[in-house]
């Protein structure tokens, strides 16, 4: 028999701290598979966020750095400008990127930094106990929106990808999901495309937003959490390629 699926080398053999059914495990694996398939382990530097994935360097066997909450795009700028031949990616959650780090992502995008941003959107702040995030859905009950999110007073779920896509400094934005087999495969294709753009020195920032399940704080079983993404989240966060400056017309 031949092996048709086994763990890719850049994903470390270990038990993660993620909850059962958390999307991070899948996202990490896809990223590791892309790194191995493109054979770039020895020139990739990753930036871990503050969030559930703060220990991403325990799971991904590449040079990695852990930075202050939200600052990853600025750190990535410092790294890429001084090391243009390296593949630099940041891996950020919705608190990291869309709350505290909005200035940093906006300006890295605005300057057209040639970095890849993996944006994990699970509509909640997981690490700190399930508080409302900028991307939390209206009506969603969280630790800081116990009656369900109201637009009046807390605003609407933030559509960062759409906002970033209008900037000339952004070359590629796609929104994907970890909500089923086809969606997962598509997410991997998008991640690979984003990294390849950086490798071919395409001017501009590439960002892949990944809708990801948080069964624990959505108070759902893992399979139902994935279904909630497909049934509900995509109404506010539609999937698909939002911008691809390098695509042939």
């Amino acid at each position: 028999m031949k092996t048709v699926f086994s763990k890719t080398p850049t994903l470390k053999e270990c038990s993660t701290h993620y909850c059962p059914g958390c999307g991070h495990g899948i996202a990490h694996r896809l990223l590791a598979e892309v790194i191995d398939e493109l054979d770039i382990r020895d020139k990739t530097i990753g930036i871990a966020p503050v969030g559930c994935a703060v220990l991403a360097y325990e799971y991904l066997d590449i040079d990695m750095i852990e930075v202050a909450h939200g600052r990853a795009p600025a750190v990535a700028t410092g790294m890429k400008r001084t090391n243009p031949d390296k593949v630099i990616f940041s891996y950020q959650g919705d608190g990291d990127l869309a709350a505290i780090g909005t200035a940093e992502i906006m300006h890295a995008a605005h300057r057209g930094e040639r970095i890849t941003v993996i944006f994990i959107n699970n509509a909640i702040f997981g690490m700190t106990g399930g508080q409302m995030a900028p991307t939390t859905m209206l009506g969603q009950v969280t630790a800081t929106s116990p009656e369900g999110r109201q637009a009046d007073g807390t605003g609407y779920p933030m559509q960062i990808s759409e906002m970033l896509s209008i900037m000339p400094g952004v070359c590629y934005v796609e929104r994907c999901a970890i909500s089923g087999i086809a969606a997962i495969r598509n997410t991997k294709r998008a991640i690979k495309h984003a990294v390849e753009l950086q490798m071919t020195n395409q001017p501009g920032l590439s960002l892949v937003e990944i809708l990801s399940p948080c069964p624990t704080y959505w108070r759902m079983k893992p399979a139902n959490a994935m279904k909630w993404i497909e049934d509900e989240m995509v109404k506010v966060f539609p999937l698909g390629k939002i911008k691809d400056a390098a695509a042939k017309k």
Binding site: I45, I47, I65, V67, A68, R71, A74, V75, A76, T77, G78, M79, R81, T82, N83, K86, A103, E104, M106, H107, H110, R111
Partner: peptide, 23 residues
């Protein structure tokens, strides 16, 4: 490399990144 950052907060983090790569 010269970058005018968007804030001092961003500047010190850019320093953090470059320093981490040994520069």
């Amino acid at each position: 490399v010269f970058v005018q950052s968007e804030s001092e907060l961003a500047a010190i983090n850019m320093v953090f990144g470059a320093a981490a790569t040994g520069k």
